[in-house]
């Protein structure tokens, strides 16, 4: 196999099928994400958005098809999972911070324990990252002492500390109060502006329109329609997309 080069898609998904038992949740999904691109996946509840995103970092397995991250097959049984997970960062809807560790420790843990990096270097980087997500001064707070939006930004910093090449965001603002949604969206926007490759599942249509290079609409396990945001939101063709957009906009 030829090595991956940045002119090829960083994430390449081809005809992916995934079932839970007898129920097929993904029915042949294909999409490409180039380096530095931000794509949004939108669609009704249960359409398989989370499932798809979890397949990209091998939290879920797939029945057929292929998912390449930097040219490496994610569902190769011989895959080095650690190698994959340093490349792919993931942020969850429920933040999932480690409750027994402070914000700073949450960010530092994986680089030290998993990558065996030098503690002093990691700490400097972690402090920088917390500053970047605008949480200066909260380093020694435990997750239980932070608001939802603050916890989510710690979770983003925690993922970034592994220096991933692509970030996956699964409805990261869905559990937040309306006031704190914005601070998290701003953080993601900063990241995108810095050139981070992002795959976002979101219900924030205004945000999707503003931040993304490409929007995918999924329904019942297939991609119904996709396009550049201006096109997609202004000129949707499929009646299912229109019905969905009418409902959420």
């Amino acid at each position: 196999m030829t090595p991956w080069t940045p002119d090829q898609p960083l994430v390449s998904i081809r005809n992916v099928h995934k079932s839970y038992g007898d129920i097929e949740v993904l029915k042949g999904i294909s999409l490409d994400v180039m380096k530095g691109q931000v794509i949004c996946i939108i669609g009704p509840s249960g359409s398989g958005k989370s499932t798809l995103i979890r397949c990209i970092n091998a939290l879920n397995d797939i029945q057929s098809g292929s998912i390449l991250v930097e040219g490496q097959e994610v569902h190769d049984p011989k895959l080095d999972k650690l190698a994959l997970r340093r490349k792919v960062g993931m942020v969850f809807q429920q933040y999932n911070l480690f409750p027994h560790k402070t914000a700073l420790q949450n960010v530092m843990m994986a680089p030290i324990k998993v990558l065996k990096e030098n503690r002093a270097e990691v700490e400097a980087r972690a402090r920088d990252l917390l500053k970047k997500v605008r949480l200066e001064g909260k380093e020694n707070h435990y997750p239980g002492e932070l608001s939802g939006g603050q916890q989510q930004r710690v979770a983003i910093a925690r993922s970034l500390a592994m220096r991933p090449d692509v970030m996956l965001f699964d409805e990261v603002t869905a559990a937040l109060d309306p006031e704190t949604v914005k601070e998290v969206l701003v953080t993601i926007k900063d990241l995108a502006a810095d050139g981070m490759t992002c795959i976002l599942v979101t219900h924030e249509m205004g945000f999707a329109r503003e931040v993304s290079d490409h929007v995918y609409f999924t329904d019942k396990g297939v991609i119904v329609e996709h396009g550049a945001p201006a096109d997609f939101f202004g000129n949707a063709q499929d009646p299912r997309t229109r019905a969905f957009l009418d409902q959420v906009l």
């Binding site: 650690l82 997970r85 792919v88 969850f92």
Partner: peptide, 13 residues
Amino acid sequence: PTAQWEASESLGF
């Protein structure tokens, strides 16, 4: 919560 296992797994632990 299983989410703790998943968060940890996704960080490469």
